[in-house]
Design a protein around this nucleic acid. Structure first.
Lengths: 118, 118
DNA sequence: CGGATTTATAACCAGATGGTTTTATATCGT
DNA sequence: ACGATATAAAACCATCTGGTTATAAATCCG
């Protein structure tokens, strides 16, 4: 898991416009103007975001006359998930604690909270 | 899944120093100086990274005399994983294609590659 | 050929980021 | 009270980022 791959992937995902573009591309290829349509942003703005996504390997582009259709390339996202998987037990731990707490409260029967906390 | 939560989380993860800090914190609480030790960086540099992690909710801090021990808060990582989960099928698709390709090659028996590709 | 469409490129700008050095603040130990 | 330790805060700097406008390049259509 090369560090700069994760750098580029996470950095690319840190922008809501770029995440929305990726979400759109799940439904299939799209041209730059199609991708730009939903946003209150100029075309060069979108092109810049696409360049970031492309450099991160999250988007590849074809050729169709003047158009450069964009396609989702999800592979780098797997690396991100793999990195995050190392932390799963840590956020699950919180749920375990919460479960334990709720269990303890429930042990006193329904509405135990009202009786116990004063 | 508030957008700016994902913004802050992914942005925090986009820096290798910060990812290394989080990795270190999996082994338990650590003070700022302990966290700074492995890095060729000044203490204020590390403190800045910690402030980013704290603002993203990935680190919380206690009090122990002059020390402000840092603790991993993994909850926001779950949101990141949940977002990424929407793409799992897309990167798995690549594996399916690869599997299909390998299967097809294998169908011709071992070493089919050599015979088929000329 | 000539105009329209699609995209990229360049130049520019404000603000964020990642780092530094220097200094202040809080707390300990003696 | 004093020096040492741990951390934060401030000021500064270079570079990156996210956006713009204006322009160029490529390709279609008639």
């Amino acid at each position: 898991m090369a560090a700069d791959v994760l750098d580029a992937t996470f950095a690319a995902l840190a922008d809501p416009t770029r995440r929305a573009i990726l979400a759109r591309l799940r439904e299939g290829e799209a041209t730059v103007t199609e991708l730009a349509a939903p946003f209150a942003m100029t075309q060069p703005g979108i092109s810049k975001h696409l360049r970031v996504l492309e450099r991160a390997g999250l988007v590849s582009r074809g050729r169709d006359a003047q158009r450069r259709p964009c396609r989702l390339e999800a592979a780098p996202l797997k690396d991100a998930v793999d990195w995050l998987a190392n932390y799963r037990s840590y956020w699950e731990e919180s749920y375990q604690k919460l479960d334990a707490l709720l269990g303890e409260l429930n042990q006193n029967g329904p509405d135990a909270t009202e009786r116990d906390i004063p």
